[in-house]
């Protein structure tokens, strides 16, 4: 690879509808739909490939910071400023349950593989796991070893991985009962797993993305050039794991070569901070969201 030919640099669609900043945009499991959420306290379901707005989910009382869909596309979970995790039914658009317990804003939320557990990460320095199957409103697990706000969370089949402002990426291995703490020395803003599951990409607040080997905790590569100092921003790897994609506070999108860490491509995507990037699981297609209130769909 190495060339920027296959990269999604052409704007295919602009999804307009959010009033105010869009804080996160996520593909669903198969990449046919996407969800965005933002400061206007709504979640929106789109068909990004056709540029159609499908549905709006309103119930949040504060800004919505993150959203995730189950693999069967039946349920949503979202979180944000109102300290609760909302568990939605996708088709009816109703909130099935709300999980209360975080002492502060919730930054990130994810379903597990089976859609039976929601794991959330909050500003209150904790990661909490909520059971969608039982009636209990209590979290089934609270991890509070973090020293600072937990910004981002990721689940594998057996692990919970979370990145925190205390500079650590912590991996909680449920199978072994072990917590691995990788101290990066810089506040971690966002984490993202490579598609092969072997590496973690951690976006740090010193305007650097760091690629860690998960088994050894070794720092494999650093990606620089963009600005990321004060906003919650996303980063991700492309579907082929050949490039690293990330936004910048000046509205640019950066693509780095995974191995050489050279900036392969860089273009201005938005007028303002790029808050989130999401990559299609299979195709060369990318979503970006921005404070300017738009979600853009990029294809090659």
């Amino acid at each position: 690879m190495g060339s920027s030919s296959g990269l999604p640099t052409k704007e295919a669609n602009v999804l307009k509808g959010h009033e105010g900043a869009v804080l996160a945009v996520r593909f669903n499991g198969d990449g046919n739909y996407c969800l965005s959420c933002g400061k206007d306290r709504t979640l929106r379901l789109w068909n990004p490939h056709r540029g159609i707005h499908i549905k709006t989910y309103t119930s949040h009382g504060r800004e919505v910071r993150d959203v995730h869909v189950t693999s069967d596309n039946a349920k949503l979970c979202s979180c944000g400023g109102d300290r609760q995790i909302f568990y939605w039914d996708v088709s009816t658009g109703r909130v099935i349950r709300k999980f209360r317990g975080h002492d502060s804003e919730v930054n990130s939320v994810k379903f597990n593989e089976y859609g039976s557990v929601v794991v959330s990460a909050g500003y209150d320095r904790s990661v909490r796991a909520w059971d969608c199957r039982s009636q209990s409103t209590e979290p089934i697990q609270i991890v509070d070893t973090f020293l600072d706000s937990v910004m981002s969370i990721w689940l594998t089949k057996t692990e919970i991985i979370a990145g925190s402002v205390d500079g650590t990426v912590r991996t909680f291995d449920i199978r072994i009962g072990r917590e691995l703490v990788d101290d990066l020395g810089q506040p971690v803003n966002c984490i993202s797993l490579s598609n092969d599951g072997n590496c973690v990409l951690a976006g740090c607040l010193d305007s650097t993305l760091r690629l860690l080997d998960r088994t050894t905790g070794e720092l494999l590569q650093e990606y620089k050039g963009h600005t990321c100092k004060s906003y919650k921003m996303d980063c991700c790897l492309t579907n082929t794991d050949a490039h690293v994609a990330g936004g910048s506070e000046d509205g640019y999108i950066f693509f780095w070569d995974l191995v050489e860490a050279s900036v392969v491509s860089k273009f201005r995507a938005h007028g303002s901070v790029v808050t989130s990037v999401a990559y299609h699981p299979k195709d060369s297609c990318m979503l970006t969201s921005s404070v300017d209130g738009t979600v853009k769909v990029w294809k090659s």
Binding site: Y114, V117, A129, R133, I140, R175, G177, L180, D182, L219
Partner: peptide, 24 residues
Amino acid sequence: YPKREEFQWRPSPVLCKRFDLVDP
């Protein structure tokens, strides 16, 4: 950096169950 440390961590039995894993 990065430094790696390792600790024991106790997943709750329910969590293990929901993740379809054996409680370590």
